[in-house]
Nucleic acid binder design. Structure first.
Lengths: 229, 229
DNA sequence: ATTACGGCATTGTGATCACATGTTGTGCTG
DNA sequence: CAGCACAACATGTGATCACAATGCCGTAAT
């Protein structure tokens, strides 16, 4: 009798969903190298499942532009170009600023403390030189923040953008290390939490813009590209 | 020898691609009714193909949020809510303004004349009460405009948003008829083309915002929802 | 008349095979 | 040694079957 209109449950029921989540997390951890090709049978063997769940998962990921389906029927991790990076930057700023401005009014003390906790782990990952944790926890912090904006339309778009830049976050990280060691005073995430506590949406949006731009600048530097305005 | 790195060719080679394009166009024509369920075998029988291409196509469309996969394993056309509409509005304005501002500098006279042509057909569809053409040609005009922005990242996001509102454009259209007949002076698309000719990005962005907002308002009215600011 | 139960039909998912296409390696030829 | 033809392999796509889960509907008990 339970018609159960909810779009989907949280715990994956199908293998396809599990495979998708695993691949997704792997991408968001920077485990996928740009330009490398991904094969159905390779993934299937790696995860110990048959081809079908992998097929559907990769179809999802190509739709989200996390992977690319060349017309030689080969699936690869897309490369980056200066033009794509510029677009990713603009789109992230627009959508994430919006998500943040919606979230700021719904963040209660409990949520805030959890954000502090995530950021603490993020900081730890930097000190420990754990690159994959660094990449993943950065996204996790942003996701946890925007979560309270309840953006059921915008959030999937943002996550699609994340999947597209994630493979290049290793370069951002390495650039991080070469140019300057982690500085507590420059903890942009912590500044965001302060802006939230002071209920200052404008400041929060500025910090998000700055945070995203910072990553873009590092990636441009690591790629040897000219730094945009 | 041709490695052919281009992401995909224009002409669909696989059945899955053909099925996807057909379903996509059907959605962008308003042929899919909100709340209705879509079945694999139903589509397969309708299009005369087997289950596999349909499976992959529907997986793509659910990823783009054009369709919804309930946890009863049923695929349906999503309903609209005031909150979703608000998000769709904000996201469309942000992304389409950006796409337009990028496009305006690349539109040559030839492109402009084609845009006039598309808009002419769009106007025709209104006068002929051809609802599906009206819905589709509206998107087609915007797509053709943004095309010259060469937004390979942002464009897929915009199209995802279009797929989500398309099923509700019939209501926008009917509201169009009830409140006021088509007025040549109110042809927003023509005003956009004028803004392009005068090379006025700010005006173009304003007109796009206004055009999108106009549709949102009509939908809100048709749904009996309060009109947002 | 209403509700609960049970059997049947429908539906998405998973598995397996066949196949067209593209890739790679190898040996022949100039 | 370079260039090319051809075979062997790898890979995504399509088709078909099996199956568990879900929905649907008629029947019967209260």
């Amino acid at each position: 009798m339970n018609t159960d209109d909810k779009p989907s449950s949280n715990e994956p029921k199908t293998q396809q969903e599990r495979v998708y989540m695993q691949l997704r997390e792997a991408i968001l951890r920077g485990k996928f190298e740009p330009g490398h090709s991904v094969t159905l049978r390779g993934i299937a063997e790696m995860l110990g499942v048959s081809l079908m769940p992998v097929r559907e998962s990769l179809r999802r990921l190509t739709t989200e532009r996390a992977l690319q389906l060349l017309n030689n029927r080969r699936i690869t991790v897309p490369m980056m170009t200066p033009e794509k990076l510029e677009e990713l930057y603009q789109a992230r700023v627009s959508l994430e600023s919006y998500a943040a401005s919606r979230a700021i009014q719904n963040i209660d003390p409990e949520a805030l403390s959890y954000l502090y906790e995530v950021n603490e782990k993020h900081t730890q990952s930097i000190l420990e030189d754990n690159v994959e944790d660094y990449i993943y926890l950065n996204f996790e912090f942003h996701r946890e923040l925007y979560r309270y904006g309840r953006c059921e339309v915008v959030m999937p778009l943002i996550e699609s953008l994340w999947l597209q830049i994630a493979p290049f976050m290793r370069m951002v990280h390495s650039q991080y290390l070469t140019e300057s060691r982690f500085n507590e005073a420059e903890d942009k995430h912590k500044a965001m939490l302060t802006a939230i506590e002071k209920n200052n949406p404008a400041q929060l949006k500025y910090l998000i813009h700055d945070d995203i731009l910072d990553g873009v600048r590092r990636l441009q530097a690591a790629m040897g590209w000219p730094i945009s305005s």
